[in-house]
């Protein structure tokens, strides 16, 4: 079947099997391999992307269901080569180690900051509670999001995109 979507601002279309998962469509058909996968039961959140402005687990969305939607992946976080404050925050505060959960974590963080520019620790922890990280013990992810909150200038424009 034919699907069309806007991925990181680019129109894409392809002929796919109806059963193709969105995560595989992004990774294999579009070769956007920044979106990872880590389980089969929708528990780990490694595959998180934005669909129509909302973070979702792309292993639990069919590419067919996403047809007509806007998708944003980690590859769409930076603007004109300039890192999003969330990306910079993860670097500055050592919010990543192996890097595998990182794209999903950053996308949840960006969404949180767009809706709550100055979140407290509990709100940050809640926002990423559907995503597992095995390396950081979450502490530096929380610090990275706080860093990004303190250094964000982009949330206004982002909200328009995600609305």
């Amino acid at each position: 079947m034919q699907v069309n979507m806007l991925v990181n601002g680019v129109e894409v279309s392809d002929d796919i099997e109806p059963r193709l998962l969105l995560v595989h469509f992004l990774r294999e058909n579009l070769r956007l391999t920044g979106t990872h996968w880590g389980c089969d039961t929708s528990n780990c959140g490694t595959c998180t992307v934005w669909m129509d402005g909302t973070p979702v687990k792309s292993c639990t969305v069919l590419a067919a269901m996403a047809s007509g939607s806007e998708i944003m992946t980690v590859e769409g976080l930076a603007t004109d080569g300039e890192l999003d404050p969330v990306q910079q925050g993860f670097i500055e505060m050592h919010g990543l180690q192996c890097g595998f959960c990182t794209p999903g974590m950053m996308l949840s963080a960006r969404w949180l900051l767009d809706h709550n520019p100055d979140p407290n620790e509990e709100q940050i922890r809640e926002a990423i509670s559907g995503q597992i990280c095995r390396c950081t013990g979450y502490e530096n992810i929380v610090r990275a999001v706080k860093w990004a909150a303190a250094h964000s200038q982009k949330s206004d424009t982002r909200e328009e995109v995600g609305a």
Binding site: G45, T54, P55, V61, Q131
Partner: peptide, 9 residues
Amino acid sequence: IADPLVRNR
């Protein structure tokens, strides 16, 4: 119920 990402969908 589940987690924020699941609740989004």
